[in-house]
Design a protein around this nucleic acid. Structure first.
Lengths: 377, 377
DNA sequence: CTGAAAGCGCTAACAC
DNA sequence: GTGTTAGCGCTTTCAG
């Protein structure tokens, strides 16, 4: 981290007019009336806004030539092309994606369906997707399902009706109805985060079952024996449930099982993690390890331990999942599985990009990441 | 937090087939060829997909009647309406938003422009927007600017070409060019997070200048005298800069100024906060308060203090901004300004909803929240 | 290289 | 109530 001590400018001092009236033009426009009469002849015919035809007229060519010039398709003489671009800029032509997408038979929209955006993990996936489509003219449309299968169906359906260039949905465990419309949609479908199952088209993610299993094995190797599990929303988050499955599988292979289990109903938050940890530690003395459904909860556990003088990791090992930023700088070390969120998002976007580009299914249909386990020393 | 100890089911045990081949039908379809010949007569005429016309035929009515029935517009006899809906469901009609939006003159898209999605704050705003449009048929399209004014222009421009029902952009400090296209767009524009300035149409947020000022006043009242400032990316995050302005204003009113200042160039992360805090505390002994540009950095500072035995808040007070979840459960108390992210998102969405609904500008054009200051006792 | 015609799928306007 | 006629703004033919 480079840091530069500088003198700090007082910003915008003069502009901090706090109770200024709103620009009235904008207001009136918004209210519906008064279309500004920039072109006199428009007053009567109520012409809406500049279209390709306007550009064509301004450039003295046909609509088609203008169209071709603007998007660099087909062959247009350099002279005319320049003229068109110039004209477009001058009259402030913006274009209408609805029209072009309808005409072509696919839009530049890329649908993204996630269970939640408040979870930083999905926010990072979105960032990865944004990365991945950078440079292309795709625009992400997103929908949130709240881990609700019916809502997911609605969102996917709605999304498909925009004829997107591709659709990225979280997880492999959609309802049958959702899978059906996805399959019939004739659009590349990329399912992300998970690879434990059969994708509709392609998937990119990691095996949560394996992740849970490997974490358990690592902890067992450290000599841990008395495990507790703390999780939230397992009924809806199937990936967390898969990790748990894997973890349990490893335990039973070693003749062990969870000593205690706490499943919260609320969202996974640091606070929930702290509270649940306090509960389970109080009711089950002698635990030497807690596996959490994710890092948020684990950090809550860490806070509890710091506040109550529990020696981590000597006395008690805490293990989360994801490898979030806030885990790295924690004053105490906890174990976690470092998942490549951005990379998953980016890879998903690229799959959509490639498949659309016409190249076909050249890309892998199952891209599996193998996240590293960090036992926090 | 309610917690329920339950027996944990091993999920999907039988389905964890890890290296299964992808459904080949989907593949072939995706590859471009082989449109499944569900309707024999379609083999020849290569009819693309079910449209409103198909529904109309299936229901034995005209396209118009089908259209009206499907969206509950105009008057359609109950009998026919039912017939249409039935037919639509049977043939799996999905509809085409591109076409309907082009025909009507506005889409059901709502554009959302944020500087970053990795910052949990904006993720929460998005969640609020999702809340706000719940129930309406609006779909959010988002664009990320990375705090880059040029990129912001491109994103806004691109977004406008979808003729969205409204557009929500972060902050009041767009470039002039961006403001211009926003003004001319004939679309409700809601600028969020900030109210220190003049909005294009409407804004909802808080005064960051005031927030900084009030925080300083609260800290001064606690008797703090030797202040340091730690921030990241101030050149791009104008709102953080405004808070800093306000804070400085309060200091100088009391004849004080920052003893030390550390401006990082990287993104605001917990780690950056920890590192910068270590630096500034090492180089400036005797500080009794650090003001951070946000909570992420402040939490980093808290971690540093915990790890190094600095007594917080007795010896040193740490102050952030936002009131994030992870601050609440921290083992030590830090000061922060609690911003209503979700509420801002929801309010912005509602403004778009209302203005579109035709109701006009009945809603306030400047919705200011007054965030509470939590000095963390 | 360029342009004219014909839609993409749907919905406002008007008829009936 | 219901159907017909025109487009929305652009792009894909297919002639020149």
């Amino acid at each position: 981290m480079v840091s530069i001590p500088v003198s700090i400018p007082v910003v915008n001092r003069g502009r901090l007019a706090l109770a200024v009236p709103v620009a009235s033009r904008a207001l009136k426009r918004w209210a519906g009336g008064d279309r500004s009469q920039k072109h006199k002849q428009m007053i009567l015919d109520e012409k809406k806004r500049t279209t390709l035809a306007d550009v064509a007229v301004a450039a003295g060519v046909s609509k088609m030539t203008a169209s071709r010039a603007l998007r660099g398709a087909g062959d247009v003489s350099k002279a005319k092309a320049d003229r068109v671009r110039q004209a477009a800029k001058e009259i402030g032509y913006v274009g209408n994606h609805l029209a072009s997408s309808l005409s072509g038979k696919r839009s530049d929209l890329i649908g993204v369906v996630v269970p939640s955006v408040e979870n930083i993990v999905f926010a990072e996936v979105l960032a990865g997707i944004a990365d991945g489509i950078e440079g292309s003219d795709l625009q992400p449309v997103f929908g949130v399902t709240d881990y609700d299968l019916d809502k997911e169906y609605d969102v996917v359906r709605n999304m498909l009706s925009w004829k997107p260039a591709g659709i990225i949905v979280t997880g492999l465990d959609q309802s049958d109805a959702t899978k059906r419309i996805l399959e019939n949609a004739d659009v590349p479908v990329v399912q992300i985060m998970d690879v434990d199952g059969i994708p509709v088209d392609a998937c990119v993610g990691l095996s949560h079952f394996t992740a849970g299993k490997e974490m358990a094995e690592a902890l067992l190797k450290m000599g841990r024996k008395r495990f507790a599990y703390v999780g939230c929303g397992l009924d809806r988050d199937t990936r967390a449930a898969k990790r748990l499955s894997g973890f349990q599988a490893a335990l039973s292979e070693n003749g062990l099982a969870f000593v205690a289990t706490r499943i919260g109903r609320a969202r996974s938050t640091v606070k929930a993690g702290r509270d649940l940890s306090a509960e389970v530690l109080a009711s089950h003395p002698g635990l030497d390890c807690i596996y959490y459904s994710n890092d948020d909860l684990a950090v809550g556990g860490a806070y509890h331990c710091i506040a109550n003088g529990v020696a981590v990791p000597d006395e008690l090992v805490l293990a989360g999942f994801n490898g979030l930023d806030l885990v790295d700088s924690l004053p105490i070390r906890i174990a976690t599985t470092r998942t490549p969120r951005r990379e998953i998002g980016r890879a998903a976007a690229e799959i959509v990009l490639n498949s659309n580009h016409g190249g076909g299914v050249g890309t892998e249909r199952r891209k599996q990441f193998h996240p590293a386990i960090d036992i926090g020393v």
